[in-house]
């Protein structure tokens, strides 16, 4: 069963930008994972994916399924942000085994109190966005959207 985003993550008009179907993939066990892209020409790996490689401008990009756990590079609890965001919230960079660094929200409202620190292991959660959660600019009824967040493993 996919986890449901905790309140600390669901605290904005949209839980981060809603991802497109191409940005996620469902593994054999039924779990949703993030999916980036890899350049067939130069090997550059990115998330989110793009039709053109930002390193070599090549157009032969192939999907790159990403693992569901990674290493926290750095994080911060944000106390001042634009009005649309409910503070405090926690954000951070997570390094995935595929060589891709992903930025996103982390569950909780106080990273210091939660013991979040560089190099700890965190899990990547992905879920289908309820329509009401999706960024209205991105969502359409016909295409499901997704969002992701991190939590300590």
């Amino acid at each position: 069963m996919p986890a449901t985003a905790p309140a600390s993550v669901r605290n904005a008009p949209h839980v981060g930008r809603a991802l497109r179907a191409a940005d996620v993939t469902r593994a054999e066990d039924g779990e949703l994972h993030l999916s980036g892209a890899e350049c067939s020409d130069c090997g550059t790996r990115i998330f989110p994916g793009a039709p053109v490689c930002p390193s070599c401008n090549g157009e032969r990009m192939k999907p790159l399924p990403l693992g569901s756990s990674g290493t926290l590079y750095a994080c911060s609890t944000v106390h001042v942000a634009p009005a649309a965001w409910q503070v405090p919230y926690v954000i951070g960079y997570v390094d995935l085994p595929e060589g891709v660094r992903v930025f996103g929200k982390i569950a909780g409202t106080d990273g210091v109190a939660a013991g979040l620190a560089p190099d700890i292991t965190v899990r990547v959660h992905v879920e289908e966005a309820a329509v009401s959660d999706a960024n209205p600019a991105d969502a359409s009824p016909a295409a499901p959207t997704y969002h992701y967040w991190f939590a300590p493993a």
């Binding site: 949209h14 930008r17 750095a74």
Partner: peptide, 28 residues
């Protein structure tokens, strides 16, 4: 408050603000 950033940016749309970018550098 914080400077308005480009909302199309993947990080900005996930909650990035300039102080947090520097804060993460500081933590690291």
């Amino acid at each position: 408050g914080t400077l308005p950033l480009d909302q199309d940016d993947i990080e900005v749309s996930n909650g990035m603000v300039m102080p947090a970018l520097y804060a993460m550098r500081a933590q690291r």
